[in-house]
Amino acid sequence: MTTGRGLKFGEAGLGAAVLALGAFIAYETLKSPGAANVVVGPRLFPYLIAAGLVIVGASLLREAFAGRIAHQQGLELDFGAVVLVSAGLVVQLLLLEALGWIPASTILFMVVARAFGSRRLVIDALLGLALTAAAFGLFNYGLDLNLPIGGVFDSLVAEPD
């Protein structure tokens, strides 16, 4: 649920985040060593970009307080679904190398489908399994890419080649 007020908060947050990123890059660059014997060292561009970020961030903050908002009528947002989808992605990347592409991505498929309101868990699972297995077959055997089999299964299954 987000109303106009929440969005205004987000707007100010955007300005602050841009500003902070600029300050952070300037600080990191300050810490890094410059280079001798070159006309323009590796630090000039980071400083320019940091300056740009700070100026744009400040101007966004000003706009946020001046009251120009992107969605005038407010915007309803279902944050539960957002958290579910992003959690699905985290689970997939954590399990990818241990369990392998097919199980990890099937879980992702099921979680995202659930976030979009699907309640047919078994069908989602079967469909996800079919899709990820097809991708695995196509990419590993047809296109010579290496999607992980999974550390757990490595000992059971022989190498693809």
Binding site: V85, G88, L89, Q92, L93, L96, W101, S105, L108, F109, M110, V112, A113, R114, A115, F116, G117, S118, D124, L127, G128, L131, T132, A135, F139, L145, N146, L147
Partner: peptide, 22 residues
Amino acid sequence: PRPWLYAGILVFATLGAYTLNN
């Protein structure tokens, strides 16, 4: 159906990102 469409998009999005450098 939208649940399957977006689930599929994310599966292929992660596939694309992972296979760049494994």
